[in-house]
């Protein structure tokens, strides 16, 4: 399978199953499009007719392009066959270790963000804080089920984790004790809205947190529209100076500023550029996922505008990088040269198998977005994963599990997509959240184009 598209002056051909990327001129672009379905002589006839006015396109030239395509095919770099399907169905028998836990240390929040998937931090349940004892057991559970893996990731999540800060600090101290005993290395991370950031938190985070995720939606009027305090005030002016101080004190590394865009700001690149103008360089901006009935829900009519925005973002990122003041956009981070192997590309994020979320009461869920839905309870940190049938279901939830993905060129980049989004959109973790797929495909097209541009390849026309 191949995918052909034109973007920013480049004619790009992605060979799906080899991972090869080609940049071609208009003649080669047309020849490749016909190659698998049309006899060579007919391709020659059509090309000579189409390019009749161009002196450099003659029969010998077209046949030379056909030869080049044949050579690439023989080398496995074009029209490569899908040889991974059987591999995908061995995944159920694969033994997995647990690599990461998301600790819900606080099911409560000091903001009331309208679009919060966690229902203002409560996850459709009661307000709660994780006790040190539950958190300690969670770390013990992770160590015990991590096999020979050394690096273990633990994210302090909520709600707002800074509302249970003393427990966070005690758990980090406990983890540091245990890692020496068990030859492990904890990489602690923190996801925060920033309201409670102060010098003490910043100093501790800089010392102990491998990464921090800072929630900011962009321009003040956009951010304050939906991210409001419990007293119904905007939070932008409270958090931005704190984020700037934190990022500066971390040397500009080990953080992401992460926003959500909605129907209210389909011009979301302006929010990303605003973040960059505030001095932040590690950026992420996600489309809101919610019921279509919500006033801030993205609509079908928004899609063309969103596609255009992703293209604007890509070309502006190339320009800014050349000018010496580039920034990183999470979804355009694409390592084509030494990126993930085919096993990782098929198996996806690891939810429900290598990654679990832990509630304040010690209950285990496939990921933070399933917390509160009892059907997806997997066990607890004392007894471990008891719902092994559900774990097997997540093991098999991969790039080859969804019939709707069969003809999608992007499935080895999304690994079949987010199980939680699929579940919330269709009622099944093997469903397809089509709106998200359309945005994902556009982002991958842009990300590949950036790689092509940064490799110094000539434009196609």
């Amino acid at each position: 399978m191949i995918h052909q598209y034109k973007l920013n002056g480049y004619n790009i051909v992605l060979d799906v199953y080899s991972g090869s990327v080609h940049v071609v001129d208009p003649l080669a672009y047309d020849v490749i499009a016909l190659y698998e379905t049309t006899p060579a002589d007919e391709i020659v006839r059509q090309m000579l007719e189409k390019y009749a006015g161009q002196p450099d396109v003659n029969e010998a030239e077209v046949r030379e392009v056909l030869d080049s395509v044949e050579q690439l095919k023989a080398a496995g770099k074009l029209f490569a066959p899908d040889q991974y399907e059987n591999m995908a169905f061995d995944f159920k028998n694969r033994s997995t270790v647990i690599k990461a836990l998301c600790l819900h240390v606080a099911h409560t929040c000091n903001l009331t963000c309208s679009y919060c998937f966690a229902s203002q931090g409560k996850y459709q349940g009661e307000r709660a804080l994780m006790s040190f004892e539950v958190g300690k057991q969670a770390l013990d559970f992770l160590i015990a089920h991590s096999g020979s893996r050394r690096n273990l990731e633990v994210d302090f999540f909520g709600g707002e984790p800074l509302m249970n800060w003393d427990v966070v600090k005690r758990l980090v101290a406990y983890g540091r004790e245990q890692e020496k005993i068990h030859n492990k290395k904890f990489r602690f991370t923190l996801t925060t809205n920033g309201v409670l950031l102060d010098d003490e938190v910043i100093e501790f985070a800089n010392r102990e947190m491998h990464n921090v995720v800072l929630s900011l939606d962009g321009r003040k009027e956009i951010h304050d529209r939906l991210r409001r305090t419990v007293n119904d005030k905007g939070s932008y002016d409270i958090i931005v100076p704190k984020f700037q101080k934190l990022v500066e004190s971390r040397g500009g590394q080990g953080y992401y500023v992460r926003g959500t865009f909605t129907h209210a700001n389909v011009d979301f690149t302006n929010d990303i550029f605003h973040m960059a103008d505030l001095g932040f360089t590690e950026l992420s901006m996600e489309p809101v996922v919610c019921s279509p009935d919500e006033p801030y829900a993205l609509t079908e009519e928004d899609l063309p505008k969103l596609f255009e925005q992703y293209e604007i973002l890509a070309t502006e990122m190339i320009r800014r990088k050349k000018a010496g003041h580039g920034f990183t956009f999470y979804h355009y981070m694409l390592d084509l040269k030494s990126g993930p192997c085919i096993y990782k590309r098929i198996s996806g994020c690891g939810s429900g198998t290598e990654y679990l979320a832990v509630t304040p009461w010690g209950e285990l869920y496939p990921c933070h977005q399933f917390v509160g839905d009892e059907k997806y309870s997997m066990g607890d940190v004392w007894r471990g994963v008891t719902n092994t049938a559900l774990r097997d279901e997540f093991k098999m939830c991969n790039a080859y599990a969804r019939p709707d993905c069969k003809d999608c060129w992007a499935r080895l980049y999304c690994s079949g997509g987010c199980a939680a989004n699929a579940y919330h959109a269709t009622g099944s973790i093997r469903g397809v959240y089509d709106y998200g797929c359309q945005l994902f495909r556009k982002r991958i097209e842009c990300a590949i184009m950036i790689q092509v541009a940064e490799a110094g390849m000539s434009k196609s026309e």
Binding site: G19, S20, V23, I342
Partner: peptide, 24 residues
């Protein structure tokens, strides 16, 4: 050149899986 090819990891070769990647 009519066809330029980017230097990319060969996925078929990558089938020849250490499992050390994070939840690359």
């Amino acid at each position: 050149n009519r066809i330029q090819t980017l230097d990319t990891r060969d996925l078929a070769q990558s089938a020849q899986g250490c499992g050390e990647c994070q939840t690359q």
